[in-house]
Design a binder for these strands. Structure first.
Lengths: 265, 265
DNA sequence: TCAGTACTCAAGATAGTACTTGAATACTTC
DNA sequence: GAAGTATTCAAGTACTATCTTGAGTACTGA
């Protein structure tokens, strides 16, 4: 790689030629660690990973959700797979990708937290986007509980149906964003609506709230999405358990047993 | 970019020309997230970050510890700084880098855990290295406590003195690796010696144990290093509190309050 | 003021990564 | 077995990152 000996050893730089066994071990280990971080080192792959974290999905669907070309999405997903972050299985024609380990979700969440806390641009960009939609006002979890107890609120899950089925906030009503305009009649009249989606950087809820307001409804956005809800240790309702109707299950739930930093899920 | 209209719309690829505001927001946000992961996407920077996590240090020292040329180390550290992961202050001639936030340490730890759990090579490389030094046998935390209670063990911190001062396992004796050969006389005779260093991928303790054994002493390596000790919620002793001698403080400590989510290698 | 030190900057060679395109593969369905 | 579909592969081009070298900056101490 770096040529012959000769006067190479003269430089002030590291004597890269004569590496000790300890050095070679470290190089090998850190090269492995960097396989994981290199896989995360692309905006598109982070987005794909967050989508995969919502539930298993096919290549074509992931590519479309992330606005990527099909071949490009496939290649990015392969990079993630080679780094051990996702797994894929082939069922018939379709290849389904899923998160390889819940720990990967934790890594993603920590990455996001570091960016939020250390990069001022994250808050600036978010604020500007929300301001542009007149949605600086948000509802946090505590406020949502209060509203639910008050009973005059509809909690709306605007994600695609399969994500709703994979897990949603108890008591939420599923109306995917593309269907919202023509299903307005289903919403309880006169009630305030709180919409949520995948997370704070998923735009579905923002668009839903915008649409609802243009139709003259009172609507707000839940500041966190489903992943944050789960990460905070709260219960999710999924298709299997959903038969217990939607009554007011949120109101009856224990109020956040561990606000610390549970990996939970 | 993607040519004229005509049959352009036919392709399955993303229509990258007409991006919605939502798409532009996502692109901007994920670009920010990837600033953090791009900073981690180099083996050298991960190593530098782990060194910085041990305590503040100058550019020259970090470069030497990571076997990097000075300019190269400086550039890598700047990349880390621009991603908000480290901070630097200039005092006289020296620029000191430190971790910007404890959350960065958590990110680093999670990255390591993901690599350990998902990449088989990590265990393979470690095992091969340890086997080459005849040190497959390690002492874990529980075993260390047992030995300490038995009283016939010396706990040895072989890191550089300033890292020892910044925080060490209570009761440990500081003998930096380069001094070890000529300070053998200081070690209590006949006792077993347990050596530790920065972490499982730091080779100092391995080399210390090798040296001690060649001199005929009974020596073992503690499997985790100082960062893991602290991450497990244990108390550290630092220079300020070190006056309380070394008696047997480890034996008197509460036994691991949070054994919850250990990497458990 | 001058030499020395610690670090940073600029520039260039090299290597690696990203995205696109068109073709190939693998499986299903008719 | 032929047509169709989801995905992957291969190759080309543009871009980005890395490391090195030598010069430049900022501060210290004599």
């Amino acid at each position: 790689m770096n040529g012959s000996a000769g006067k190479a050893a003269r430089t002030a730089a590291a004597p890269r030629a004569a590496r000790s066994p300890g050095r070679r071990f470290k190089d090998a280990i850190y090269a492995q660690f960097s396989r994981v971080s290199k896989a995360l080192a692309s905006p598109h792959r982070i987005e794909l990973l967050e989508l995969v974290a919502q539930g298993p999905r096919t290549v074509e669907r992931l590519g479309r959700l992330a606005d990527l070309g099909l071949a490009n999405a496939s290649q990015h997903l392969q990079v993630l797979r080679e780094a051990g972050l996702v797994e894929s299985t082939k069922q018939g024609l379709f290849v389904t990708y899923r998160l390889a380990d819940p720990l990967v979700g934790e890594l993603l969440l920590t990455l996001r937290r570091v960016a939020e806390r250390r990069l001022a641009e994250v808050e600036r960009i978010t604020r500007e986007f929300l301001a542009g939609h007149g949605q600086l006002e948000e509802v946090d979890e505590a406020a949502l509980r209060r509203k639910v107890r008050g009973g005059d609120v509809t909690l709306l899950d605007v994600r695609p149906p399969e994500e709703f089925e994979a897990g949603h906030i108890p008591g939420a009503l599923s109306v995917p964003l593309p269907d919202l305009a023509r299903r307005l009649a289903e919403l309880p009249k006169g009630q305030e609506i709180v919409a949520y989606c995948r997370g704070p950087y998923c735009v579905l809820a923002v668009e839903a709230v915008g649409l609802l307001r243009r139709r003259g409804l009172r609507a707000l956005r839940l500041e966190d999405g489903i992943l944050d809800w789960a990460a905070a240790g709260h219960r999710l309702e999924c298709a299997a358990t959903a038969s217990r109707a939607r009554s007011n299950s949120l109101a009856n739930q224990a109020p956040a047993p561990s606000p610390s930093r549970r990996p939970a899920r």
